[in-house]
Design a binder for these strands. Structure first.
Lengths: 191, 191
DNA sequence: CTAAAAAGCGTAACAGCTAAACTTTCTTAC
DNA sequence: GTAAGAAAGTTTAGCTGTTACGCTTTTTAG
């Protein structure tokens, strides 16, 4: 990797770090974009060159390959397990794996949970995987890639985690949601 | 109704009319808030006093009682009909009733469909009824008002129309979505 | 070595939106 | 009928995120 790309990645990282630090310190709405640029010692125009999607994108620097995990959960599930069950298992494990790994990760989650604008943005990013997930489900069931039933299942599965947020017992609530989807899916023909 | 309230309603109407006219003429993004205020012959601050939710709210002036219709569809459905089926029927009829009634209504729908910001806002408004609908479903099924399964059904039912938008055959797609929900709901215990 | 590509800068502006202090208009209670 | 007060509206001024434009510096590639 050349010096150019290294420096580019460095400023991008500096921006994301400064943003996350300031946000967690004083709250998302209380920190302006000009201040973040200053903290990273960069101009505002440069900030927006690195994060063209705007202020919210500063928080979601590491956008990992969760799409691959979703597709894999469908494709490589154990024999006899339904698609909704496989997704259920995946979405249950998604949280607990990291909460105990990275100490700063709790702040990160709390920040998103607390800030409406960030919740909306996170939802949008998350739902981008709908198409890929629907395609994987459709292929598995031998249906057309844009089959409405598959798209519905994919959409509902992806929205499930946000739906159970705020319950006094999120895990049980998620069980209930996927019970609905599982019975619906297996009962509708495409087993 | 006194003169005061009449005048207030008049300016509000003037704002909404001017906004809708300008938006349909030149597109939502091409019309600024200052221009709308000018067209209605009021100041910008006055505009925001009438529509504190912002520019998007100017389009959704008449906010009717669709929540009552949703709750009624659940409560007063024919004996033996499942809750998802009742909602399915309601959501199917919602469109066709008005398209042939009001000529300007087509422009209104096209404007919303074309503009991402308005789609998002409409979705938010629509999903506000989730809690009331979930409560009605829960009461009907003899469950707690915040039961996760009921909330999931309400949420998914409300999202169904947006989910099938863009399909080459939206009605059939909606059938598929509600097949999923119907089988899931009746199969999960609460018939 | 040189030239183009790319990162960054500063200014300036535009969008939506809000606060503050002030004027006008309507209502209401005396 | 009139005076007090609430409510609608105005002006001004400003703050936010975001973008266009033209310019300088750095890095890479031929």
């Amino acid at each position: 990797m050349g010096r150019r790309e290294r420096k580019k990645a460095a400023t991008r990282q500096a921006l994301a770090d400064a943003a996350l630090r300031l946000f967690t310190e004083r709250g998302y709405e209380e920190v302006g974009v000009r201040e973040i640029a200053d903290a990273a010692d960069v101009s505002v125009t440069t900030l927006f060159k690195h994060f063209p999607d705007g202020k919210e994108a500063l928080v979601f620097d590491q956008d990992e390959d969760r799409e691959a995990a979703l597709v894999a959960a469908v494709r490589e599930r154990p024999a006899g397990q339904s698609v909704p069950r496989a997704l259920h298992r995946l979405l249950l494990g998604a949280h607990s794996r990291r909460v105990h790994t990275d100490p700063r990760f709790d702040d990160f989650l709390r920040l998103i949970d607390t800030t409406p604008a960030l919740r909306e943005y996170a939802r949008r990013m998350w739902l981008r995987h709908e198409q890929a997930l629907a395609a994987a489900i459709a292929e598995d069931a031998g249906l057309a890639a844009d089959d409405p039933g598959c798209r519905a299942l994919a959409h509902f599965a992806l929205e499930a985690p946000a739906l159970v947020r705020g319950s006094h017992d999120p895990d049980t609530a998620l069980d209930r949601v996927f019970d609905l989807l599982d019975h619906g899916w297996t009962g509708t023909g495409a087993c």
